[in-house]
Design a protein around this nucleic acid. Sequence first.
DNA 1: GATCGAATGTCACTTGGTGTCATCACCCTA
DNA 2: TAGGGTGATGACACCAAGTGACATTCGATC
Lengths: 187, 187
Amino acid sequence: MSRWEPDAEGRLGKAAITLFAEQGYDETTVAEIAEAAGLTKRTFFRYFSDKREVLFNGSHELAERWIGGIEAAPEDAGPMAAVSVGLDEVAELFADRHAFARLRSRIIAANPELQERELIKLQSLAGAIQAALVDRGVSVNAAILASQASVTVFHVAFAHWVEQDDPAALRRLMDESLEELRSVTAA
Amino acid sequence: MSRWEPDAEGRLGKAAITLFAEQGYDETTVAEIAEAAGLTKRTFFRYFSDKREVLFNGSHELAERWIGGIEAAPEDAGPMAAVSVGLDEVAELFADRHAFARLRSRIIAANPELQERELIKLQSLAGAIQAALVDRGVSVNAAILASQASVTVFHVAFAHWVEQDDPAALRRLMDESLEELRSVTAA
DNA sequence: GATCGAATGTCACTTGGTGTCATCACCCTA
DNA sequence: TAGGGTGATGACACCAAGTGACATTCGATC
């Protein structure tokens, strides 16, 4: 692709994570990140629409995996069952990224701006799931609620996952979260 | 309070909403808002931590009302039942603000930055509800899920409310949303 | 009416973010 | 192999959000 040093985007992402972890998000300027990657501020903004976005690159892949799982679910499965098939894919995706996920989570946890961005990414994920459910014949209202609920379940489980030490625990934590939601709403 | 023209904060808020509605959020600068209110940019940032915040002033009142309802719920009510009592209070709070809520919603809907801020406000609302539930003796996990679910229910119902024409429909829409969530998660 | 404190103004500055144009490295083709 | 095309990068100027430091203004109070 590029004719200079390869993978400008990857270098920028790596430099950003490193600097954020070392000295904090607010204390790191875009100019610094670019310089650490041997590029300029202008180039940073060609790859990332804003400074936060560099931490949310993977969200598209997450959505694709999850949606793929939903589409592959048996036709007669209900909305939550279909969503749960998607969670299998998601758990697999994160299987070897526990350390990275923890680092990234800590950075985000330390900064409200980043939490805002994370929430809107989850919201857009919920929107995609909703559409996938509607495609399966689920009613719009049910799809809204089911997608919101499942994203909440994922979010809660993911937060637990990064704060404990077993990289393989994600799927189990998601199931526990789902079960808890069931018992709470049933009451 | 103030010794100049009274209610600087109120004037800033009013000027902001008006300008945002007229010419859009991005196209309105803080300096413009301040000038319209007969103040300066610096004073704007003394009342509002950033430009978005001027649209989210009421969120504290919403949380207080909802929490008040939860605390007033019968001791033996389950988490979702207690939350639902809070929704009565919330519905009352918005009874005479339908037009304003619609205007504000349209502004927010037109701007992703503002949607981010809205989501984090809802998240903080969920956190407050969670704490109120824990105070009632609900387990932490159940409180997390119940608060998240109830905020989702509120969000969905509110979105419907501002897009239809009956200002008195909020409580009914919230109940419908809640029922939908029950039936979806039960499956 | 001197003084005090809270609210507001002034000013300079940093940083995120953008528009525009120049430049560079490579590829293709004559 | 010279030259032109093309997409990635750099250079530079600029705007607007947000902040820190200090000055000013008004009203209250003694």
